[in-house]
Nucleic acid binder design. Structure first.
Lengths: 135, 135
DNA sequence: TTAGGACCTAGAGTCGGCTCTAGATCAAGT
DNA sequence: ACTTGATCTAGAGCCGACTCTAGGTCCTAA
């Protein structure tokens, strides 16, 4: 049977999200936690699985280039609860377009890089004396 | 007939590469120009089309996430001239793999974002009273 | 009961990559 | 002759996102 109240320390959350404990505290101070993080008797942070899930989402949004202010904005919408789904959707759509654009730009860069790799492969495939004979 | 010595001021190069004049001087100081930038009688930088071409390549490498130290390394190889093509190729291949990995990661993030956009679209497509009725 | 380790806060430091400033020089137009 | 605007150098400043430090608290286990 699973625990009914699986509470996690900041260190455990760090391990599971791949974020450092510093970053977890930093994110909290930056307002990117949906719920205020609970504390135990000794003042230590107590997280639960929902927090881990939210932080996992945060890492994905960050990894795709969402700036912290936008992440905070999204967090605030979620924190306010039902009723602002249009705003959340608009924010996510904006970010989606941004990611699509990033991928497109990277693919354009990749084309050139692949081309240049090909050029050097050709150069190295033929004897040195041919180097300047390819127009 | 085209000019035989088309020389460009830093401002013109800035305009054509999209880099600021500050960035052009900064890149030069960081060692990412293949040839030392020539100067006119008054000490001003004089660029040519080759410089613009090189800087254009630099912007593409930077835009695809190559750090300045790697760009400098590549510049140095090119500056040394023929004979180090294997090294240039290795560097470019490493960068290519890095870009491929970036694109892959972004696509993974995109999957989640698209999924979440879909969730909110569904929520907004049905009456508010249904909000919690979808399992 | 004491040593170790995880945790706390507030605030400073780091890093990469620009971006800007101050004060000077220079070329061209009026 | 004078102003305007582009350029010069050296060096400071900025921004985002962490990352680390100092000095302290708290729990556990030998």
């Amino acid at each position: 049977m699973p625990d009914i109240a699986p509470s996690l320390s900041i260190g455990q959350v760090a391990e599971r999200t791949g974020l450092s404990v510093h970053t977890l505290r930093f994110y909290e101070s930056e307002g990117v936690m949906v719920n205020p993080v609970r504390r135990d008797a000794g003042g230590r942070r107590v997280y639960d699985e929902d927090d881990v899930g939210w932080l996992t989402l945060c890492t994905i949004l960050r990894a795709s280039g969402m700036p912290l202010p936008a992440l905070r904005e999204y967090t605030e919408l979620v924190r306010r609860g039902e009723g602002n789904e249009e705003e959340r959707l608009a924010l996510l759509r904006r970010h989606r377009e941004d990611v699509v654009a990033q991928i497109r730009r990277l693919n354009e860069c990749l084309d050139l890089i692949v081309y240049k790799v090909g050029v050097y492969e050709d150069i190295l495939d033929r004897p040195a004396s041919d180097h300047r004979c390819t127009p």
